[in-house]
Design a protein around this nucleic acid. Structure first.
Length: 406
RNA sequence: GCGCAGGUGGCAGAGCGGUCAAUUGCACUAGACUGUAAAUCUAGCGCCUUCGGGCUACGGAGGUUCGAAUCCUCCCCUGCGCA
């Protein structure tokens, strides 16, 4: 299902091709998040124009939303009206996001300082502690959802994912928090490993590929133990999940500990990451696919990616700005011709001023156009990364791009 | 000219004797967002500050009061109605 086509000379970066029932995915690649079997704000036609190769939907959320309709669910491809490659997350992330993450207001990287940031756990601005909706047992996980408790375990997660019909499915796991200590993380790891084996046993459909998930927090011994264990099982691919430390530097250390235990010829997915600079670092360490809400969520919040970094299109200074989205941040910095954006929104002549106006007017097309642009931007960047690896100039491209974007 | 209703920070609009530099919304400024219960959230938004506080403010001028955006008088202005 996966073939490495070219390896970078200086790093672990590689170009590959991932083949599923719904086509081929060139890697390294970005997986666009479509939790509820739709990429927020985009139509299936829109997605086709964004260079998207793969979409990831969510087992837990679809299970809860669909309810009884899950039995007659036609499959993600038909339901969404997009015939590309789908992945589904197992629901393991919701063990964290609806539980500990809510309770402590943290994300899977506790502090998102650029690097070497201060230690300690500051709550992300705007996210206050809320009720923990999750109860974890060795058998599975209880979720408080809409006043009732529902139970999800490794077996049910597999059954739901088979009904959803993604091309790539994930083993059910317990995503831990950066706030968890070694003892707890080890306990959780034992559960994740037991559930991984159940996943392999319960998998029925031959047309779906199953990935195992490496956990272990930011603890080297646990990460290595997990990578060794999960890596030894007959999964079709591997994902790296869970808490990834307190800084980006720690995150990449975790990846470096993990990768050596994963089979060279199996695809490697980094769950829930990332931002632009994370992509370069991840590729450099040998990651093949990434998924993250950043391009879509930031788009809805007015964050627009350009060849010179991110701008917030909501700012007053963009009112009446007749220049295209893809330009210098100040408006006076002119991009070279090659940097103009080929996304469907920009191709139709969308200006910064117009997008600003649409956002201000709360016009639904604002979020759609912004999402089209950002998703295209990320996918196009991945395409450029692939090309740079093929051309043996990955590190040069990385440095040049990061200098420009930051 | 008469009658009625009003004039509050960039705008809209609360407050109607002290707890008011003044609720709230918009606008504006800065920031966050990493396997999506986030088209969301946070902070700031008169001037100065050694961050304790100080100063100037609610159309204008007087007045009552220990104390006024809030009460009284006059003036100016706006809207509606009647002439």
């Amino acid at each position: 299902m996966f073939k490495v086509l070219k390896k970078d000379d200086k790093t672990k970066a590689r170009v590959g091709i991932l083949t599923t029932e719904h086509g081929e995915v060139e890697t390294p690649s970005y997986v666009v998040v479509g939790t509820h079997a739709e990429v927020r704000c985009l139509t299936p036609e829109d997605i086709l124009e964004t260079k998207t190769q793969m979409v990831i939907s969510n087992t837990y959320h679809l299970w809860q939303t669909l309810g009884d309709k899950l039995k007659t669910f036609p499959g993600l491809h038909k339901a969404m009206g997009w015939n590309g490659t789908f992945m589904t997350d197992s629901g393991g992330f919701q063990v964290f996001s609806l539980g500990f993450a809510r309770e402590h207001g943290v994300s899977k990287i506790a502090n998102i300082f650029p690097d070497e940031g201060e230690k300690g756990f500051s709550l992300p601005a705007g996210r206050q502690a809320q009720e923990n909706l999750v109860r974890i047992t060795d058998e599975g996980v209880w979720f408080m959802d809409g006043g009732k408790e529902v139970f999800l375990d490794a077996k049910l997660s597999m059954q739901i994912q088979e009904q959803l019909g993604a091309d790539i499915i994930l083993a059910f796991d317990e995503c831990t928090s950066p706030l968890h200590d070694h003892a707890y993380t080890a306990e959780a790891l034992a559960r994740t490993h037991a559930w991984a084996k159940i996943g392999l046993q319960e998998k029925k459909r031959g047309d779906q590929k199953l990935y195992g998930i490496v956990q272990g927090g930011a603890f080297r011994d646990l990460r290595e133990e997990s990578a060794r264990f999960i890596g030894s099982l007959p999964f079709d691919g591997f994902a790296i999940g869970g808490s990834l430390g307190n800084t980006r530097a720690e995150m990449f250390e975790v990846i470096r500990w993990t990768i050596p235990f994963l089979r060279e010829e199996a695809p490697r997915h980094l769950l829930g990451i990332g931002k632009i600079n994370d992509l370069f670092e991840g590729v450099e360490e040998g990651i093949d696919t990434f998924d993250c809400v950043v391009p879509t969520r930031e788009a809805r919040h007015g964050g627009i990616w350009t060849s010179l970094g991110r701008i917030n299109i909501l700012k007053g200074r963009f009112s009446g700005d007749v220049s295209p989205l893809q330009e210098g941040r100040s408006g006076s910095e002119k991009p070279s011709g090659s940097m103009s954006c080929a996304c469907a929104a920009c191709a139709e002549g969308l200006t910064r001023g117009e997008l600003n106006r649409l956002f201000k007017a709360k016009d639904a097309s604002a979020a759609r156009l912004a999402t089209i642009h950002n998703v295209y931007f990320f996918n196009d960047l991945m395409a450029q990364i692939r090309q740079s690896i093929k051309d043996n100039r990955f590190l040069e491209f990385k440095n040049e791009t990061l200098n420009r974007l930051s």
